[in-house]
Nucleic acid binder design. Structure first.
Lengths: 269, 269
DNA sequence: GAGTGGTCTAGACCACTTC
DNA sequence: AAGTGGTCTAGACCACTCC
């Protein structure tokens, strides 16, 4: 192998991605330092392969040796790229078996983004009830957050989650119309698992990370009715913007949580 | 260097820690796999040095080459240990300068654990007002969470944080009496910076990570008075347990946040 | 036994900071 | 120029999984 700073040669062609690469590693911008190490370029190429669907959720990606050959770098460099993708939760390593594309369908990773926990732990699963699923124009605020133009098609889903028979979460969910064409109340009800698993399996949309804004609010008439509390009761308001590859927003979820017997848990470090 | 599985030889003595090491790397428990790679043992030794105060917040630790010599391993192995300590936020790497012990006194890291953000960003700093600082016996629930015996000495601090003249946060803070001997209202008022910077500088207690439980609650009479809202108004209740080295709990903080113009932000991944 | 990821080493060179 | 962390390589061996 030549020096680390040399341009990456274009490896043999593959199905989905061409693995083309900028000719130089140092950005040419005037005075811009913008140095990107080799392993980050590999990481970017691999992210593209994930985004393009060359490797699908749940599947194994090629072995480190194969990737090293494909990208014409040492195994250690591939390893560092995979390490970062694994800590970003895009990949999951399993010693002796291989490296796999992360999936929301996994039993152990299900409800990865749900931070509400019961005060008294109980292995019980959530009961879902869908209130409606409508296709309509995105309101201005929703459009802005989802990166749509005001008036673009969107899908609104509203549902209630119950634990031990008690309604606890009311979710008002907005999805961009384009990638979620064909989403209906029937399909929602038919699919057993978590929403994010369905989005991934049936629409090819993988939620990678999310940003939440949390507040305390007073229950309005609708929320009070749906959640079975008095109007004016304090509820946790959780606005979640979910992002897919490349930090593209693909879901806006406004949740109201009852927190008499549950709490939102968080780890700071 | 001998094989990776060999026991670590005890390096030359140092001031604070003896760097003693278990004779074998594989735990002897019957059938227990408990394999611990070399770099994790190095990490544990370094954590001990941090805990023992051999390296203090803000100071530089020895260079990777020095550490490699001290522990009689390769630089790469030290590097992996330091990498993990850096992602755990115990250390901070600065290329060309060295590796430093993380500190809450740092301007850029200040208020690391405060997740409340204004809806309209404003570079304004918090105004603090201390309501009281009392030395007393820990109530049962506080004692349990702090790992004290019921009735052990504790320090209770209550304070209000205001932003742009508006009271926004009411904190009820409990600290174990032993390590915080000598904490008084006067010293609190005298110290300018964040509480955690003071705890670190004046009591040698470094907060490393924290666990929070968040709820929506109705303001009681006291909270309403202190925060200037109507009784019954929704407030965000944030219970934080802060931990120091070795996951030892050293602070219980119960906060009530007004969220009309602020929100608790969180990143999920 | 073959294949996978995981650890450890040794050495070269690069980028950044300080003197 | 010297010292620090950061990158990259090549090779050996270990731990785990599956056939």
């Amino acid at each position: 192998m030549s020096t680390p700073s040399a341009a990456l040669p274009v490896p043999a062609g593959r199905a989905a991605a061409a693995d083309a690469l900028p000719g130089e590693r140092i950005a040419e911008g005037p005075g811009s330092p913008a140095f990107s190490p080799l392993y980050r370029q590999i990481k970017a190429l691999m992210t593209r392969s994930l985004q393009a669907g060359e490797w699908r959720p749940g599947e194994a990606i090629p072995s480190e040796m194969d990737l090293a050959a494909r990208f014409k770098v040492s195994q250690g460099t591939v390893r560092k790229a995979v390490d970062e993708l694994a800590t970003d939760n895009l990949l999951v390593r399993r010693q002796g078996k291989g490296t796999f594309v992360a999936t929301h369908a996994e039993q152990k990773i299900q409800y990865r983004f749900l931070r509400l926990a019961p005060d008294q732990p109980s292995g019980e699963r959530a009961q879902r009830r869908f209130l409606d699923c409508r296709r309509q124009r995105a309101p201005a605020d929703v459009a802005r957050l989802l990166g749509l133009k005001a008036g673009d098609a969107a899908v609104q889903v509203r549902r209630v989650l119950s634990f031990q028979g008690q309604p606890v979460i009311y979710d008002d969910i907005w999805l961009p119309g384009k990638p979620f064409k064909g989403l209906t109340a029937e399909r929602l009800a038919a699919y057993g698992g978590p929403l994010y698993a369905m989005f991934e399996a049936e629409f090819g949309v993988s939620m990678i990370r999310a940003e939440e804004k949390i507040r305390a609010v007073a229950a309005d008439a609708l929320a009070a009715e749906v959640l079975g509390v008095a109007a004016g009761s304090p509820l946790l308001s959780v606005e979640r913007l979910s992002l897919t590859y490349g930090d593209r927003p693909v879901e806006l979820r406004r949740g109201l949580y009852r927190t008499e017997a549950h709490h939102y848990r968080n780890e700071l470090s």
